[in-house]
């Protein structure tokens, strides 16, 4: 059976106020998804519903293991103790060493900087070997390259990431994007196709990732014929075809 997580007509109310409702989506294994939405639309609450941390209406069917990360964990001990390094296969050990970029693992968690605390928090969750990993808008301190390294790590562990973000540039790291609204999903699809809906995105108040915004505007002036995600390719198209 295909691994998936189903959400049917999920809704949440707090303090007698409907935050959102009618959210339906089937999350499939090996298909990383990025969720965006206006401020206070209930993105975090949706994750908390999936984690059974809040009361919700509708149905969430989870048949595969899930892990959640809402904030940097408050942990005690050394990295070695926290991730039980010796119990892992040599392949997994190597992946983790490459990810952490540390020469040894006997650093105390409390002495790590925020970025390493976040990395270790992620690893603690990853080493529960979930099928689906839900992460709430906490990777802001990561550079793009570090986010790519995280995605690579998760892929190596066969973990599907469902990431909530308020950083529109993050969407470009994901093949699939969902725009959440008060009455469920407003738009979903391949990320580029969603972001190409310039008018709708602006009407909703979203800015666009720089490269998409620039491509769309250049296209509207008929200077290019397509949307470019790679800046070097865009540069070559503009100046070499001149």
């Amino acid at each position: 059976m295909k691994k998936k997580l189903q959400m049917k007509e999920v809704g949440i109310s707090t303090d007698n106020q409907i935050i959102f409702d009618h959210f339906s989506y089937v999350l499939e294994h090996k298909k990383n998804v990025c969720l965006i939405g206006q401020t206070n639309i209930g993105k975090t609450l949706l994750l908390k519903a999936i984690a059974d941390e809040v009361i919700y209406s509708g149905l969430i069917i989870k048949r595969n293991p899930c892990q959640f990360l809402f904030q940097i964990l408050d942990l005690v001990g050394t990295i070695d103790e926290l991730i039980h390094f010796q119990e892992l296969t040599s392949e997994h050990q190597q992946l983790i060493f490459e990810y952490l970029k540390l020469t040894h693992l006997n650093y105390s968690y409390s002495e790590l900087n925020l970025k390493f605390k976040l990395k270790v928090s992620i690893l603690v969750k990853v080493l529960q070997f979930p099928t689906f990993f839900f992460v709430d808008d906490i990777l802001q301190s990561f550079k793009t390259q570090e986010k790519v390294e995280l995605l690579t790590l998760l892929q190596a562990f066969h973990i599907t990431l469902f990431y909530v973000t308020s950083n529109i540039e993050d969407t470009l790291l994901f093949p699939y994007c969902i725009v959440m609204g008060k009455n469920g999903i407003l738009m979903e699809g391949k990320t580029v196709n969603v972001l190409k809906q310039e008018k709708i995105m602006h009407k909703l108040g979203f800015s666009l990732p720089f490269i998409i915004d620039l491509s769309l505007q250049l296209k509207s002036y008929e200077m290019i014929n397509d949307i470019f995600l790679n800046e070097q390719e865009l540069i070559e198209q503009l100046w070499k075809s001149n």
Binding site: D213, L214, Y221, M223, I235, W239, N242
Partner: peptide, 26 residues
């Protein structure tokens, strides 16, 4: 390709337009 250190997309767009139309090449 020399462009000023802009921080707004619309300024970059205008500068690209000027550069391409003036015949700048890689």
């Amino acid at each position: 390709i020399k462009l000023e250190p802009y921080i707004e997309t619309k300024e970059v767009l205008k500068a690209i337009y000027r550069s391409v139309n003036s015949g700048d090449k890689l």
